[in-house]
Each structure stands twice: as structure tokens, then as C-alpha cells.
Design a protein around this nucleic acid. Structure first.
Lengths: 275, 275
DNA sequence: CGTAGGGCTGAAATTTTACTACGCATTTTG
DNA sequence: CAAAATGCGTAGTAAAATTTCAGCCCTACG
């Protein structure tokens, strides 16, 4: 849809082109707007908006909005563009959200390559889970710990370098160490991975597949760290990491069976006591 | 969407139920119809159609058609089923991911209703940002604080009840208090919202729109808390909250202009020093 | 058994929105 | 340089969405 508009840009007259450009730049807003609003936004008149719709082969404005909502509700049809200094609030918000959705859709496309099965199988017998991350990934680690402890297996989150180093030194068989990092080149994490691995702990990295950390870990959940040349780009990787851990959590709960289910139920009741 | 209608069937009156049933039976037709046509097809009057739309939480008929075309053009119109004890690891992982994507897509559908513009405009002049949340939302608050401080405005995260209470007591003009909660019925947060509001701080809630907290706050980012009857369901609300805050962060950065951009750039360099 | 009240309903009025007719202006062309 | 043509926006029209309001039915209570 948006592609077709782009293609016919050459055949349009001045006012129509103004409309087309606004539609291309703000499709989601247009999908919820009225003719008058679009006309004002494109600095032209209402008839020009209608004429634009006709020119690209639609029956009228109603069909334009319908087609746009259709096109935009396919999660995979997003055209990701970076946020720039000229963007309006609505533009920026929309772009951030689309980037977030896209990163999860990308993850979905790679699911079959991720070692969920293997890792979960080993988690069932673990003595404890340890989640380690620095900076933003530290929050992800805390969140994970906060979630996994409900399964009944002991959990900790480590969010600073010295503590992670110390844990790696005392890690042992039965310990599962999750190392979370966006681009996976923090030296402390890589060293921790090797050391803990040598101590026969199970080391799982959630990071970029081409990183040093990924090499050092026994298992890796590959989450491509798209380079952020743009200062405004938020770290969508956090979302991906959180979601991977969510999935691991659910899968582990299932693998652990009734005992874990019972623990989860009790946790739920503890928050909202049943009458 | 269709599921929500089905769910609220019980709460509808006779005429509204007729409309609901017609919509459920012929969603595709409704998406392209007018109010009059639907009224006639459902053997009722136009106002009843409108009332039906309002009753299920929409702003009017236009939004009903928009939502329907969205729902119908979604490639995975497979009904999301909860994770169950019989699921394989791969099934469970796929479902978790599907739910995560869906929650963000839903958020995107509601973007225009969220007060990004208003809130950002006031954030520009803020003296400090304070993010408060309990439990899992506490991690979201920490993450937000960790992110917003890069703009140059002072930031804190409060993640326990007594601290939140104390801050509300001393909050003042120029302070922006973000209260993050999944279902928004924690008493401490609600009280903090009122108290801080009375102290002329700006109170922004990121929570369920029907909650007490949403009432108590000056501005609300409505994130529907889909009830989790299922013990395995992870809290997708975290993802939504994080993403809302990501968007706010970027929008605020743009609104703050060059000074914020410069701060962001310096932060980036601090992590990866340029040669 | 009657009546007051509340809520539901649809006819009609109102407002909003999409679309059309027409004349002016600018460009195009012989 | 004149005549034609094309495109543009003002103003109007038709249609659609939404609100208003009076009647109705059902319930509650005297």
C-alpha cells in the first residue's frame, strides 16, 4: 500500500504530492483522521485530498483509511526509520513502538535456532539460577531473578562486576549462570563465563551471536544487537532479552511439572488472596 | 477484539446484544458498513449501535470499524491460546512470544489516546523525574530512571512503599512522578498519587485505565491489564510499560532539544570512547 | 393494586464528515 | 502572445455519525 503510493508519486500534481508525502510520513495518524485534518496537515484543501485518493485508484477517503489500517496492522510490514530531530512527538512515539515490535518479530523468526530445549532440560535439575548483567541488562537480570524464584529454585541477580567475578569463582556443578549483555564485549562477563564454565557450571549467554561472550558461553541465545548509530534509538534489546527470559521461564515451569505449577499458584494467591 | 466483545456479551442489554451478535457473526461486513446498515441488519436502531460501541470501551462507530479491520487483517488471526501443561517447549515459547508481540501491537493501536504530547510538554520544564513501582514494576521504574537520567534532568526510582509515601509527602511543583503498576490497585500508590497531586507535583500513571490509580493521577497512560487467569502467563504488561517509557524518553529528548541531544551523545561516547 | 422511578429504546434533530460544483489562477501550447 | 487546459481552493451539498428527547417497559415499593 505505502509502496504503491510511493511509486505513483511521480504522476501526481503539486497539491496531491503534498498529500501523498504526509500520508507516507504519518500513515497511522491518517488512518484515524478526517479529511479536514489531513488537508490541514498537508497544507492544502479537502478536495485535493479526495482527488489524491481517486488518483491512486481508490474510491474515496474512507477506502484510504481502511487500506491504511489494514497495511499497518501487519506487524511485519513496518518500515523502520530512525527518529530524527525534526520529528513530532507522535512521530517519535510511533517509530519507537514500531522498532520494538520489529525486534520481537525478528526474534520470532529466529526461535527455532535458539537452544530453548537443551537449556530447559538442564535447568530442571539445577541447584540455583544466577542472572548477571551490567547497566540496563542489570535490570533485566533483576527482573528475571524476581520471576524465576517463583519456580522454587533458588535465584539471584548479580549486577556489578566484582560480584559477578566472585560468583564465577565459586560457581559449581548444578549452577546455571545466565549472562545478559547487549553486545557481549564486557571483559568481566567474558571472563566470568570461562571461569564458571571451567568450574563445571552451566553458562548461558543472552547476547549478540558474534560477540566474545557468545564464544565463551556453553549455550547462547542469539539476539542480534542492531547497531545504534542514532543517539535517540532506545535499547530494544532489553525487550528481546526480557522476552527470551519470559519464554525460558514458562518453558522451565512446564518442564518442572506439578511442583513448579503449585509454587506459581501459591505465588498468585499470595498477591490476591482468594476470598 | 472479537474475543473482548464475546466476553462482554453478558453485560449488554437486549438491543446491544443484537448488535454484538451481528458483529461477531459478520465482522468483515461490519468493517465496511455504515451505522445505518448495521442497525438495519441487527434489527435495531442507530443509537443502539453507537451505544454498543461505547459500552465495549470504544469512542464510537468509526473506531469499531477501524478495530475490526485491524483485527481481521492481522495475519495471525489465530486465537491466542494460553500455555497449558501439555505444551511442548517449542509451543510454549512460541505462545509467549506471540503474546508479547500482540500486546505491543495492541499498544500501537491505542497510541493516539495516550497523552504523550501533554506529558512531554510538561516534562521539559521539570525539576526532576521520579519513577515509582512495586514488584515487577519496580524493575521497570529502575530501568526508566537509568534511562531518563541521561537527558540531564535529575532522576530517581522508588521501589518500596515507605519511600514512595515519603516522596509523595515532600513532592512539589516541578516534580514529575510516574507511578507504574499493572492493575493499579495498590493502596500506597493511589495515596501517593493524591498526596503528590495536592502538593502540585505532576502525577502520571502508567497502569490499567479502570483502576483506582488511574483515577487518582492527573494523566494516565492506559495499558489494559489483561487478566491472567493462567498461572503460566508472563506479565506482558512489563513490556508495554517499558515501551511506553522508551517512547516517552525519546519524545522528551526531542522536546528538550540540543542540550539533551548533547547529553545523550556524551553518554554514548562514555560507553564506547571514540578512538 | 397503583404509582414513582430508573433504565432501555428508537424517532427525530444536530453535528460532523465526506464529497461535488464551479470559478479563478496558473501553466501550457500553438 | 493568446487560447486552452489543467489544477486549485471556496463554498455548497449529501450523507453519515452522534446527541437529544420523549415514550415505554419493567421493577420496587407504598
Amino acid at each position: 500500500m505505502l509502496g504503491e503510493i510511493n511509486q505513483s508519486l511521480g504522476r501526481l500534481s503539486r497539491a496531491e504530492k503534498q498529500v501523498a508525502e504526509w500520508v507516507l510520513a504519518h500513515p497511522r495518524e491518517v488512518a484515524e483522521s478526517t479529511v479536514a485534518e489531513v488537508a490541514r496537515a498537508a497544507a492544502t484543501s479537502e478536495p485535493s485530498v479526495i482527488r489524491f485518493c481517486r488518483r491512486i485508484g481508490l474510491s474515496g477517503f474512507r477506502e484510504l483509511t481502511r487500506r491504511l489500517t489494514e497495511a499497518l496492522s501487519r506487524p511485519d510490514s513496518l518500515v523502520h526509520r530512525d527518529v530524527g530531530a525534526g520529528d513530532s512527538t507522535a512521530d517519535a512515539v510511533a517509530k519507537v513502538l514500531e522498532a520494538a515490535i520489529r525486534s520481537l518479530v525478528d526474534l520470532r523468526g529466529q526461535l527455532s535456532k535458539l537452544p530453548f530445549d537443551t537449556v530447559v532440560r538442564q535447568m530442571v535439575h539445577a541447584r540455583q539460577f544466577v542472572f548477571a548483567g551490567l547497566g540496563a541488562s542489570g535490570h533485566v537480570a533483576s527482573d528475571a531473578s524476581h520471576k524465576f524464584f517463583r519456580l522454587g529454585t533458588p535465584c539471584t541477580a548479580l549486577t556489578d562486576t566484582p560480584t559477578i567475578r566472585q560468583f564465577a569463582a565459586i560457581a559449581g556443578s548444578g549452577d546455571v549462570l545466565f549472562l545478559i549483555s547487549k553486545n557481549g564485549n564486557a571483559a568481566a562477563l567474558c571472563e566470568a563465563a570461562s571461569i564458571a564454565g571451567n568450574n563445571s557450571a552451566m553458562v548461558v549467554a543472552i547476547t549478540d551471536p558474534n560477540s566474545r561472550l557468545a564464544q565463551a558461553a556453553a549455550y547462547t541465545f542469539a539476539c542480534d544487537a542492531q547497531e545504534d548509530t542514532n543517539i535517540y534509538t532506545p535499547r530494544s534489546s532489553r525487550l528481546v532479552h526480557l522476552t527470551v527470559l519470559d519464554a525460558l521461564h514458562v518453558a522451565a515451569a512446564l518442564a518442572l511439572g506439578d511442583a513448579a505449577a503449585e509454587n506459581l499458584r501459591r505465588c498468585k494467591d499470595a498477591l490476591a488472596p482468594p476470598a
